[in-house]
Design a protein around this nucleic acid. Structure first.
Lengths: 204, 204
DNA sequence: CACATTAATATACAAGTGTATACCAATGTG
DNA sequence: CACATTGGTATACACTTGTATATTAATGTG
């Protein structure tokens, strides 16, 4: 803890908020310039360096924040699941609903995974991997109750579901609001296909 | 046909080639600047306007070219399919193999679908939709021989396979070459899950 | 050979970028 | 109260960008 020197008039979180103000359906985080962000934050360009090494460091911090949000959303979705049969529907609907809320950080994770620097891409991949891993443990828990999936296939199943949900989420974001329900239903069906396919084919 | 005036020293195709020279694993097409492209093409910046309205028009032309390549790849893959049982494996392996060839335009379709202007995104979506539609007719043909999928679900199945293959392709592109085989195998398995899931669950 | 027509270039400008250097402002400590 | 320490700003510089305007180069036609 620092005890001497001028107090900071702005913190990293506020700079992140300023950056988030600038992103939108057609504005990606990795295209933000340092000066744009400082303008939005109301500070001088050079003040940025007091908080982040460069814009890439800011972008990675934002991804990690979005990852945190993702995790709380997952946790909340779990509390909504009443019976085992509705787990897919409730989870997907919760995901799509949260994603569509104005100001949500989820779209960042969905849209920006494939462009930008290596470290940036790795940061996003880390969050997706977390999501897939979380899903895998769920599948293994289900497997412990009644054997459904081949043990060495749970990770592939989890990855497939993750990729599909994120891809369909990206589509929903680029589609008119009126298509949201339809896209959600399609995604529910797709996930069910994967789970059913993996459970019915315990051996090749 | 023009009969009078100075002959063009460069054509649109050559400008497209110059742009393709600049894209790579960490350089997206939508981040190219007009001047970069003209520099690579060996022409003056303003000469660009003789061939394209702006960089977005160039990007869309590139997407359409990549779409053409995609279609020939699909067509070629079909000729490789010897028996019905190997259709998934052969198709996925062909796709991943073509995608990994140096200078392939497929990575552009995989990576850039989620950023850029509206028209640009629409252009990519059009190519993915084509792919999905092609796949749907294949499923319907298979259905005609022996009923496997619910008739109103073939499009969803095709969409799911498309999104999954493209998403996994994107992952493969951002992973070390040594992981390519593993990712390909995973994708084959995932697609089989979807098809099996959709065929085993003819009614909900 | 003019001449219209088309392509390409040269020059220039305003705007934006990242960042280096230097300086000012505020704060707790001795 | 000095003073070191830290945060913030001002100014400046070298670049890059898109594009407007004007000019030059090459070509077929009359």
């Amino acid at each position: 803890m620092k005890t001497v020197g001028r107090k900071a008039s702005i913190n990293s979180q506020e700079i992140i908020s300023a950056a988030l103000n600038l992103v939108g359906p057609h504005r990606s985080i990795s295209s933000l310039s340092l000066r744009e962000v400082t303008r939005e934050a109301g500070i001088a360009p050079n003040s940025f360096y007091r908080h982040f090494k460069d814009v890439e460091a800011l972008n990675i911090a934002i991804i990690e924040l979005a990852g945190k949000h993702l995790r709380t959303i997952i946790r909340d979705a779990r509390t909504l699941i009443i019976n085992e049969r509705s787990v897919v529907r409730v989870s997907v609907e919760c995901f799509f609903s949260e994603m569509s809320k104005p100001g949500s950080t989820l779209p960042i994770l969905l849209r920006e995974g494939t462009v930008g620097s290596g470290d940036f891409q790795d940061a996003i991949k880390k969050q997706l991997d977390f999501f897939a891993h979380e899903l895998q443990t769920d599948l293994e828990k289900a497997n412990a109750i009644s054997k459904r999936y081949q043990t060495d296939e749970t990770l592939v199943v989890a990855k497939a579901v993750t990729q599909l949900v994120f891809a369909m989420g990206g589509i929903a974001l680029n589609s008119p609001e009126s298509d949201l329900k339809k896209t959600t239903e399609e995604t529910v069906l797709m996930v069910k296909f994967i789970l059913k396919g993996a459970s019915s084919a315990k051996t090749e």
